[in-house]
C-alpha cells in the first residue's frame, strides 16, 4: 500500500509540472501586453516599462516560468492587475465559498443518489424504478445553469421561499446546491442501481437469503458494502467535477466563489488572478483524484492498479 501511494505521488510530478506550464502559457498566449492593460491604455511608456520590469516580462520565457513555478509553490501568484492586491488574498476567501458549495452539493448528491438507487434496485422494474430512471435521464441532460435559473424562477421569484442570489444565509444555500448537485445525483442513482443489481445476483447473496438472513440485513450489510466500491469512485469524481461545475452555478446565483472570480477576471483581463484561480482548481482536482484512487484501492484489495 505504501509503495502504491509513493508511486502515485511520483506520477503526480509530471502532471503537476504540465499543469503549471499550461497555466503559465495562458498569459503569454493572450493577445495584448499585460503591462499595458495594468497601466491603462493611455499610460506613459515609462510606467509600462516599469511594470514590465516588475513582473519580469522582459526575462527569457524559461526564467519567467521557473519564477512562476517557484512562487506558485509558495502560494504566491503575483498581484492582481486591477487593484494590486496579492492574488492569493483574492483567491483564499473565494476558494472557501466554492469549497463549501462543493461539499454541500456532494452531500446532497450522495444522499439522494444512493437512496434513490438502492430503492430502485430493490424494486427493479416497478413503477417507482421506471419513473426514477426517467427522472435521472432528465437530470443528466439538464444544463445545471438552466436548472438554476428555473429554480430561481419558481422558488425565489414566484413562491418567495428562497433568496434568488447570494450565499451564506440559510435561505440561500438550497437552490445552488440542487442546481449543482442534480446531475451528479442522477449519475450516482444510476450507478448504485446497476451496481446493486450486479451484486444481488451473486451467489453469496443467495446463500445469505437461503440461510434465512433478514432481507434488510442482506441488502444493507451484505449487498450494499460490495455495491459501494464502484460508487465511491464516482462520488470522488463528482466532488472534483463540482469544483469546475460551480463556475456556472456561481454565475447564476451571483455567489462570490472562485468560479465567479475567474469569469470576472477573464472579462477584465486580470491574468494573474485567472492563472492563480485556475491553478488552484486544477491542483485540487488532481489531489482529489489521488484520494479517490487510494480509497478505491483500500476498499477493493483485489484490484491491481498498474
Amino acid at each position: 500500500m505504501t509503495t502504491f501511494i509513493i508511486r502515485r505521488l511520483l506520477q503526480l510530478i509530471p502532471v503537476l509540472l504540465g499543469v503549471t506550464i499550461l497555466v503559465f502559457s495562458l498569459m503569454h498566449l493572450t493577445p495584448g501586453n499585460p503591462a499595458v492593460i495594468m497601466a491603462g491604455e493611455s499610460a506613459p511608456e515609462a510606467t509600462v516599462k516599469a511594470i514590465e520590469q516588475r513582473l519580469g516580462l522582459n526575462d527569457p520565457l524559461h526564467i519567467q516560468y521557473l519564477n512562476f513555478l517557484g512562487n506558485a509553490a509558495q502560494l504566491d501568484f503575483g498581484v492582481s492587475v486591477r487593484d494590486n492586491i496579492p492574488v492569493f488574498d483574492h483567491i483564499q476567501p473565494r476558494f472557501l465559498i466554492t469549497l463549501e458549495l462543493t461539499i454541500y452539493s456532494t452531500i446532497f448528491t450522495v444522499v439522494l443518489g444512493l437512496l434513490a438507487g438502492i430503492v430502485s434496485a430493490i424494486k427493479q422494474y416497478s413503477f417507482y424504478d421506471v419513473t426514477l430512471m426517467i427522472i435521472t435521464l432528465f437530470g443528466l441532460s439538464m444544463p445545471n445553469f438552466w436548472l438554476g435559473l428555473m429554480l430561481i424562477q419558481w422558488f425565489a421569484i414566484e413562491l418567495g421561499w428562497f433568496a434568488p442570489t447570494g450565499w451564506g444565509n440559510a435561505d440561500q444555500l438550497l437552490l445552488p446546491v440542487i442546481s449543482l448537485g442534480t446531475a451528479g445525483a442522477a449519475i450516482i442513482a444510476r450507478m448504485t442501481r446497476s451496481s446493486m443489481l450486479d451484486v444481488i445476483q451473486q451467489d453469496y447473496i443467495r446463500t445469505a437469503r437461503a440461510k434465512g438472513v433478514k432481507e434488510r440485513t442482506v441488502i444493507f450489510r451484505h449487498a450494499l458494502k460490495n455495491a459501494m466500491i464502484p460508487v465511491v469512485t464516482v462520488i470522488g469524481l463528482q466532488f472534483g467535477y463540482f469544483l469546475g461545475g460551480s463556475i456556472l452555478t456561481e454565475s447564476v446565483f451571483a455567489i462570490n466563489g472562485l468560479g465567479r472570480l475567474i469569469i470576472d477576471s477573464i472579462l477584465q483581463r486580470d491574468f494573474p488572478v485567472v492563472q492563480g484561480a485556475v491553478l488552484v482548481i486544477a491542483v485540487s482536482f488532481v489531489f482529489v483524484n489521488l484520494i479517490v484512487d487510494i480509497s478505491y484501492r483500500l476498499l477493493n484489495k483485489r484490484v491491481d492498479l498498474n
Binding site: L26, G244, I247, I262, V274, A282, V283
Partner: peptide
C-alpha cells in the same frame, strides 16, 4: 492526456476561450 484531464468540466475550455 492526464495533464489536460486535470482541468475539471468546462475549466479547460474556459481557459482556452479566455486566450
Amino acid at each position: 492526456m492526464d495533464i489536460l484531464l486535470a482541468f475539471p468540466g468546462i475549466l479547460l475550455a474556459l481557459a482556452i476561450v479566455s486566450v
